[in-house]
Amino acid sequence: MRKDIIEIRWHGRGGQGAITAAKIVANSAFVSGYKGVVMAPTFGTERRGAPIFTSLKVSKEKIYDISPIVSPDIVVVLDHMLLEEAGVTVGLKPGGLIVLNTPKQAGDYHFGGMKLAVADVTALSYKAGLQKGIVNSGIIGAFARASGLLDIDVLYEAIRKEFKDLKPDKNAEAARLAYNGTTMTVTMVATTAAKTGGM
């Protein structure tokens, strides 16, 4: 209803750290002058491995509407396999941004005119020295590069703070590698209806 609110939906799997990633971005947004920050996890049905999502709304003004996001400006996808099962692009605004952790190229996807940013966050995070499968710090780098919403140095600091007892520098390095390794494209409209929203 309000036009000043940027709506970001984070898709991951239970245990993958999507909530922590959204929380890091929420904190960074707040210290960057966004007075309105509301982050609402999926309620009640979190199970390890199951698709989950988290709503993050940010605005320069205080946010009063805590209802779930209906039409996100940005969706962040921590696992490209979720594209086939979790309806990650549902409601995405026309021309909206998809930030995707995938080993594939941007050209392999068709999202009907949406902006797409891809990075192989899984591989880059491993390269940064994190255990295989840890992607929630790295995805923030891709998000930062693609959205331009927040200063990357603020995010590095927030990542180090969040992971202060769990390899803070390697987590920040994962974000840096992903930031540099993100490629952006505006996807083509799919040639057949069957291809819309998938590969």
Binding site: K23, A26, F30, K35, V37, V38, M39, A40, G44, I66
Partner: peptide, 10 residues
Amino acid sequence: GYLLSHTYMP
């Protein structure tokens, strides 16, 4: 519950 208990805000 949830709407406030589990939602993050400043």
